[in-house]
Amino acid sequence: MIEALVKNRSYTQKSASILGAAMAGLLLAAIQASSDGAVSTRVVATVNDTAISAYQVTQRIKLLKILRPRLVSGSRKQQQKAALQDLIDEKLKTEEARKLKLLLPNERVEEIISKTPGLKNLATRLKSQGLSSRLVNSYIATRMSWNRILSNKYPNQSVTDEQVAARTAQFRRDLQKQAAEHTVSIYELLQITLPVDKQATPELTNEVARSRLIEADDITRRFKSCSSARKATRGVFNVRIGKRIPADPRKMPKQMRQTLDRAGPGSAFVAGVTADRSAVNIMAYCGKKRIAPEAPKITPDMVKQRLEDERFENLGKSYLRDLAKNAFIEYKDASLRK
Rank of each mutant, 00 (worst) to 15 (best):
L126F: 02
V164I: 07
S132Q: 03
R148M: 13
A169P: 04
K115T: 06
I112R: 00
Q178Y: 13
S151G: 13
I149D: 03
S132V: 04
T142A: 15
S128G: 08
L190P: 02
R167Y: 02
V184T: 15
I149S: 04
E162Y: 11
A123M: 06
R134N: 14
R172Q: 15
R173I: 12
S114V: 04
A123I: 03
T142C: 09
K177Y: 13
P195R: 01
N137K: 02
I192M: 03
A123Q: 02
E181G: 09
D161Y: 01
L150W: 01
G118K: 09
F171H: 09
P195Y: 04
L190Q: 03
P155N: 06
N147Q: 12
A180L: 10
V164K: 01
Y154Q: 07
A169F: 05
N156A: 14
I140F: 01
I140C: 00
S185C: 09
P117Q: 04
P195E: 07
L135I: 03
L131Q: 05
R125H: 08
K120Q: 11
Q191I: 10
I186T: 13
S185L: 14
A169Q: 06
R125S: 14
Q157K: 07
L135C: 07
S138N: 14
N156C: 08
W146V: 11
V159M: 01
K120T: 06
T168G: 08
P117R: 00
E111S: 12
R134G: 12
L131D: 05
R125N: 11
L122M: 06
Q178K: 11
L122P: 01
L131C: 05
